[in-house]
Each structure stands twice: as C-alpha cells, then as structure tokens.
C-alpha cells in the first residue's frame, strides 16, 4: 500500500519542482538553447579555420576566440528558487532566460563554463545612477549640487542595495564563494547582494531596453520613502538666507515675532516668522528667540531649495514613441557663501 501511494507522490514532487521551472522558461529557453548550439558549432569551425590560417592578432581571430569561449559555457537551468525569485520581480519577462542564473552569480563563484554577473553589474550601476540622477535633477530643480549628489548616493549605495536585496530575497539565490581566511580582501555578502541588485537592472537594460529598465528603477528604487530635506544641512542659515535674498534681488530677510507665551516662565515658546518685504518666507518655533529665529531661517531655505515639481516629463521620455518632451526650467545655481 505504501508503495502505491509513494510513487505518485514522488512523481508529484518532481513534477512540481519541474512545473515551476517549465512554466518560467520553456519557450524562450529552448529557443536560446538552439541558437547557442548553432553558434557553438559555427564557432568551432571558425576556430579550426583560424588555427589553420594562424593569424591570432586579426579582428576575425579575436571574434572567433570569444565565440569559442562562449561555446564552453553551459546552459544552466534555473533552480526552483531562482525561478520563484524571477517571478517575484517579474524577471520572467526577460527574453533571454539564461540571464537569470547569470544575474545571481557573483564573479567570486569561479567554475568552468559558468557565467557571472560582472558585466551586468557594471552596466546596471551606470544605468541606475543615470535614471536616479535624471529623476531627482528634474524633480528638485533648485537642489544644491552636493545635496543632489548625496541624494543619488543614498538611492544607489551598497547599503541601500543590500537592504533591497533582502527585500527581494537575494540571499536565497545568490551564488558566491567566501574569500580564503588569509586573503587580503575579504568579500562580504553585502557586496554580493548589492551586485545582484545592480545586475538585475543591467540585465533588464540589455535584454528589454532602456524604458523597461527605467520602469524597474522607478518602481523599485524611486518609489521608496526618503526625506531628501534631511540631507540639506546648513550651518548658518541666517547668513546664508541673507546672501540668497541678495542674489535673488529680493528684500533682505527680517525676523518678526509672530506669537509667544511664558517669556518669564520656565518653559517659554516663541514663534518667529522670516519676511522678505511683506512676504513670509519661513517660520520656526523654539524655547528661545534665537532658536526660533534659527529654525525660521532654516525653514525659509528648505522651502526655497526643496521646491518640488509635481507633473513633469523626463528627458528619457524621448525614447517613447510619440511622446512629446517639454524640458522643465533648470533651477538657479546655488549661492556661494
């Protein structure tokens, strides 16, 4: 009786693992496999021809060499965990499904015939920086350069990517090898995870094109919650604001008390407003007049620099068919204090 039950169950188990794989990759994998087999055969012939002609420096020789190198690579079937990972991030739409195993393989995983994510990582890094910079540059036209750079850094740095990798479940699928104990540079899992996230962007970019990669970056990176104003740290806001107003040709800022309570008590509160002419440009509170004024000046600067565009087009919209891109106004340069 046991035997009777066992066989279909074992079968079910195998088909289930297999079904996950099959669903994800059968049509495309077969096609790419066939193509690769053809190219491999061709490359061998080419290699033989090249050996006969013995001209290794020539351009065709170099091509044949890379093709011959390609033929050594084996086509890996993604493991069920990798297939699940791919579907989680909608990577099952990649035309070349062999990229999946490549994305999750760090260069430290040195095996014969295994392809790693080194090139995808580099490509993804540049693409990611570009998309993030473009978006923030247009969205915050007045942001000072150093804050803009720092904001891009926040979205693209290793620690952020590592956090994202955790939320994608990269640790489950990443292939890498720990450095030897006596090695000078110790490879950390953090670096590996970040490389996989960048490689995803690179793979989408190379496989599906510019706009899909942009879509991925907007969906996964720029939809995250981050307060950019926390990066805007100005030491002497009062001085800075007066220089800014001078540069803008506006009246010099004046601080005025708006409300106060308990001036002589233990816990006083002051509300101070900063005015340029009749326009109130900032407001702050504090338990001392000085502190309230400081905050009011900082608030005025924040309101000026953090100006945010709501409906805007991006320069990369020009890649879309029939899309009309109207450039937004580039913000004023920052003040030199």
């Amino acid at each position: 009786m046991t035997g009777l039950i066992r066989s279909p169950l074992v079968l079910a188990r195998n088909t289930m693992r297999a079904s996950n794989i099959i669903r994800a990759s059968t049509p495309t994998l077969n096609r790419t496999f066939l193509i690769n087999v053809k190219s491999a055969k061709k490359s061998k012939v080419q290699q033989q021809q090249e050996e006969k002609s013995s001209s290794p420096i020539s351009e065709t020789g170099a091509e044949a060499a890379t093709a011959a190198q390609d033929s050594k690579y084996r086509i890996e079937t993604p493991s069920p965990a990798v297939v699940a990972f791919a579907h989680r991030l909608k990577l099952n739409k990649l035309k070349d499904q062999t990229l999946l195993m490549r994305i999750v393989t760090h260069p430290s995983y040195e095996r014969v015939g295994i392809q790693t994510n080194a090139r995808l990582d580099t490509l993804g890094d540049k693409a990611l920086h570009m998309f993030v910079m473009e978006y923030l540059h247009v969205k915050y036209p007045k942001l000072p350069t150093n804050v803009l750079k720092e904001a891009v850094e926040v979205y693209t740095r290793t620690s952020t990517l590592e956090l994202m990798a955790k939320e994608f479940g990269v640790e489950d699928v990443a292939r890498w090898v720990r450095s030897k104990p006596d090695a000078g540079h110790q490879l950390s899992l953090k670096t590996v995870k970040a490389s996989v996230v960048r490689a995803i962007v690179g793979a989408i970019y190379i496989d599906q094109g510019f706009l899909k990669a942009r879509e991925f970056v907007h969906a996964h990176f720029l939809s995250r919650d981050f307060k950019i104003e926390s990066l805007l740290q100005i030491d002497e806001p009062k001085h800075y604001l007066s220089v800014l107003m001078k540069r803008l040709g506006r009246e010099r800022p004046v601080a005025r008390m708006l409300a106060e309570t308990g001036r002589t008590s233990k816990a006083p509160i002051f509300i101070v407003g900063v005015y340029s002419g009749t326009e109130k440009i900032g407001e702050g509170f504090g338990s001392s007049i000085k502190m309230a004024e400081f905050r009011a000046n900082a608030d005025a600067l924040k309101k000026y620099y953090m100006e945010e565009l709501k409906d805007f087009g991006l320069p990369s919209d020009t890649e879309k068919e029939g899309a009309i891109y109207t450039p937004t106004k580039i913000g004023d340069t920052e003040v030199v204090v």
């Binding site: 039950i5 169950l9 926040v154 952020t160 939320e167 907007h218 996964h220 981050f226």
Partner: peptide, 25 residues
C-alpha cells in the same frame, strides 16, 4: 538613513517565498 520600502507603492513584491509541505505516507 535609507529609502524605505513601501510595498505596493510603485510595485508589489509578494512576501511568501517558499511553501514546504510535509506529510506522512
């Protein structure tokens, strides 16, 4: 400080990664 994930804003990542079924024959 890191940009924080708001799952469902921009995209949604399903959180269950694996289901293991144990049975006795």
């Amino acid at each position: 400080a890191h940009p924080v994930l708001k799952n469902g804003v921009g995209t949604f990542i399903p959180q269950c990664r694996r289901l293991v079924f144990h049975y006795c024959e």
